[in-house]
C-alpha cells in the first residue's frame, strides 16, 4: 500500500495512462466519423435539392440544439428498448460523432462559402461541371480555411470524451472516478486526470494557434 503522494501517483499513473489511450482512441474514431458525416451534410445543404438540403438543415439544427449528453443517453439507454444494445464505447463514438458531424458541417459550409465566387465562375468558364468545380477548385481552397476551426473542434472533442464516462464507457474520467472511490482521494486523482488531459490537448491547441497565424499571414 502506498503511503506518500508520489507513491500514490506511481500507482495511479499507469492505469490512468492506459485509460487515456482509450480516450484518444475514442476521440480519433469519433473525429473520423464526424468529419465524414459533416462533409456529407455540408454537401447535402449546398446541393440545391430542397428535400436533401432541408433534411440536412433539420439534422444540424436538432443536433446542435440538444446537449451531446442527451444523444449519448438516448443511444446507450434508449436504443436497448428497440432491441439495439451497443457497448458503451461504441455508443460514445457514435454519439460524439453524430453530434460532431453537425458542428463540422457548419465549419465546412462556412469554409466553402468563404471561397471567392470568382473561383467558381472561372472554373465553369473553362468548362468544368459543378461536381468538378467542387472537387478540384472549391474544396481544396476551403480545406485550408477550415483547418483551424476543425482543429478547435478536435480539441473540444478530446475533452468531451470525458462525458462518455457518464454512460460507463471506459476512458480516463471513468478510470479517475473508479480510482477515487477506491482511494478516497478525489482532489489528487482528478487533478492528475486534468493534468493528463492538459498534456494531450495543449500540443493540439498550440498547433491550432500556429495554423491560425500562418493562414492569417498567407492572406
Amino acid at each position: 500500500m502506498p503511503t506518500t503522494l508520489p507513491q500514490y501517483v506511481a500507482t495511479w499513473l499507469p492505469e490512468m495512462i492506459a485509460a487515456a489511450g482509450n480516450t484518444l482512441r475514442m476521440a480519433v474514431f469519433a473525429f473520423v466519423f464526424a468529419i465524414c458525416l459533416g462533409l456529407v451534410l455540408a454537401l447535402a445543404r449546398l446541393s440545391g435539392r430542397r428535400i436533401l438540403a432541408g433534411a440536412a438543415l433539420t439534422y444540424v439544427e436538432v443536433i446542435r440544439g440538444a446537449p451531446a449528453l442527451a444523444l449519448l443517453f438516448l443511444i446507450y439507454f434508449g436504443l436497448p428498448s428497440l432491441g439495439i444494445v451497443l457497448p458503451a464505447f461504441l455508443a460514445a463514438v457514435i454519439g460524439l460523432g453524430m453530434n460532431g458531424g453537425a458542428y463540422v458541417s457548419e465549419i465546412y459550409r462556412a469554409g466553402i462559402s468563404a471561397v471567392d465566387r470568382g473561383q467558381r465562375e472561372a472554373a465553369q468558364t473553362i468548362g468544368m461541371t459543378s461536381g468538378q468545380t467542387m472537387r478540384y477548385i472549391i474544396l481544396p481552397q476551403a480545406a485550408r480555411i477550415v483547418l483551424p476551426p476543425i482543429g478547435n473542434y478536435a480539441i473540444g472533442l478530446l475533452k468531451d470524451t470525458s462525458v462518455a464516462s457518464l454512460i460507463g464507457a471506459s476512458e480516463l474520467t471513468l478510470r479517475a472516478r473508479d480510482l477515487s472511490s477506491e482511494y478516497f482521494m478525489p482532489m489528487q486523482i482528478y487533478l492528475l486526470s486534468g493534468a493528463i488531459y492538459f498534456v494531450m490537448a495543449a500540443p493540439l491547441s498550440a498547433g491550432v494557434r500556429y495554423l491560425e497565424r500562418r493562414l492569417r499571414r498567407g492572406r
Binding site: 470524451t161 472516478r177 478525489p186 487533478l191 488531459y197 495543449a202
Partner: peptide
C-alpha cells in the same frame, strides 16, 4: 485544455 467535467469533479469532490 481540461474538460469541464474534470473541473466540476475537482470543485465538488476534491
Amino acid at each position: 485544455c481540461v474538460p469541464v467535467l474534470t473541473q466540476l469533479f475537482v470543485i465538488y469532490f476534491g
